[in-house]
Nucleic acid binder design. Structure first.
Lengths: 299, 299
DNA sequence: TAAGGTTACGGCGATCGTAACGATC
DNA sequence: GATCGTTACGATCGCCGTAACCTTA
């Protein structure tokens, strides 16, 4: 058994058990990986892969169980390299952040700026996508840290930290009937609604509030993006339900925003990363910066 | 980086950072391990060991952190081999049990006999020692499973399962004043006491009962072993406080036993094993057998 | 016939063992 | 001088790449 064989197993999973593609990814010829796999299976005394003729088509029961250990080894190996690199130079490196549009545009700018002042040598890559995909990004090691509101706490392989609490706001053009008078979910239900897609930033809080009130909203447009929602609100298509942060009194001076804090339960933005993944000191510092910024928001 | 280098680091820890001894353990010449270590340190870019001249005298900060990952890798590697072997043949193998005298003599015989009937191909090694040492045995992979009453639940690397509950009994020769009348801690305190050593089978329960009652016992002899205690009791040296199990009406017909269930809190015998250590199916079955036997004791 | 996988063989490089040397107690 | 570690060098064994071959869509 050697680390290349372990690595090969990982790569095979990522390439749909295709030896040729795996060989390419590992920068060796196909026959080499074929042999290595054979030798490994012989060493263990049992096949790890289901085969259709010579083609690999999946993992055996044994293979599935062993893949867990393989993942552990690869993670630890990665950690060793990261730890050593961090030890040698804790000023340079990269952070891959996976997050949603709302966080990227309205929350992250401040903490990232502060972080940059302390760590000018660290390159930051920001990747936007859906909360579900964010978690995949972490698992696939395409992101070091994720920031989002939904779905992260169910995963036992992730460490999550509460970052800040936020409320929804209703936005509409000036002169809209909802700009005046007592706000309520009932009144809201009279108008077409634009808000986040399912599984996105705080959509679940809206759903649970409605269910509790026995109401149904006419959400005729769902988007992942506060700015898209505002655009349609401006076009007079309805009332937008977005995070309070996303209303900027200057830029959005043509819109009225009213807090829904009393009607929709608050949502918690969270920071998540893989439990067994070593984070370089600057990433740990970055997370501290996020938490500090989060406290700031809550205050 | 390769698995032999990882293995080398583990062996170096076990040999007090002595390259020569490590080489011997790994069945290669000393110069080979010397080079491998150098190459690994060069690859990481920083030393893992503190050196006094050329001698290794300890781990650097980096080395300590990396050793955690090394342990993870070695464990996973071990697991892969165990899993494959278990998959190929789940009828043969070995179990290393670490336990105390009390369990070995009075609890384990029944479940081991039942286990043996189902798995005649499994060799059982039983190792007796103190509870503290039992935990070391697990960590050093010298034991697969430990059974004892004390000290195991504090260790987060261990999985522990409650096995059975037991009470202390007082044993004394027939005719001893304590054989008659109402039993109490106060009366007990009038006689010299013989019981288990500190850190052993249920000693802590005795201590806490006394502290609560504001009493002090004259424990003039502590032993690890119920049978040793009984021997001294027979010699008329005092009253023995042992686990109820250790009194056998036939063999110990010359002694009187009285339960102390009402005076000393019960103790729980526990089963422990390493969280990240894969246990072959027959070991899992053995543990199930222990738990079943434990339920039997409690009923 | 293209794509995926195996087998055979020659060459190269990593790693080992021998052996001589250096340092420290 | 005994113990411990490093360096130099030749030999070996493992692993790779080339290439021919096999099998199935």
């Amino acid at each position: 058994m050697n680390l290349n064989q372990i690595e090969l197993l990982r790569v095979l999973q990522e390439t749909d058990f295709n030896l040729s593609k795996a060989a390419e990814k590992m920068c060796v010829v196909q026959s080499a990986v074929s042999r290595q796999l054979q030798m490994f299976e012989v060493e263990l005394g049992a096949p790890l892969f289901e085969r259709n003729g010579k083609k690999l088509i999946g993992l055996t029961l044994l293979g599935k169980r062993i893949m867990q250990e393989v993942a552990t080894i690869n993670q630890a190996k990665q950690n060793i390299q990261t730890i050593a690199a961090d030890f040698m130079d804790s000023e340079h490196g990269t952070i891959h952040i996976a997050t949603t549009h709302a966080q990227a545009k309205y929350f992250l700018p401040a903490p990232i700026q502060r972080f940059r002042e302390k760590y000018p040598g660290v390159r930051i890559y920001m990747q936007q996508s859906s909360p579900e995909h964010l978690i995949d990004q972490l698992h696939q090691h395409k992101a070091d840290v994720a920031i989002c509101t939904e779905k992260v706490q169910e995963d036992t392989e992730l460490v999550t930290k509460d970052c800040y609490e936020w409320h929804h706001a209703a936005v509409m053009p000036h002169g809209h009937p909802l700009c005046e008078g007592e706000m309520s979910l009932q009144r809201l239900a009279n108008y077409p609604i634009l808000t986040y897609s399912f599984g996105f930033t705080g959509r679940s809080a809206i759903e649970s509030a409605l269910q509790k009130a026995g109401l149904e909203l006419d959400v005729f447009l769902s988007a992942a993006d506060s700015d898209v929602i505002k655009t349609y609100v401006r076009a007079g298509l309805g009332v937008g339900l977005i995070t309070g942060m996303a209303y900027d009194a200057d830029v959005d001076s043509d819109l009225t925003a009213r807090s829904l804090a009393d009607f929709i339960p608050s949502s918690k933005a969270k920071i998540a990363y893989l439990r067994n993944n070593y984070l370089p000191s600057y990433v740990q510092h970055f997370i501290a910066e996020l938490l500090a910024a989060g406290k700031n928001v809550n205050a």
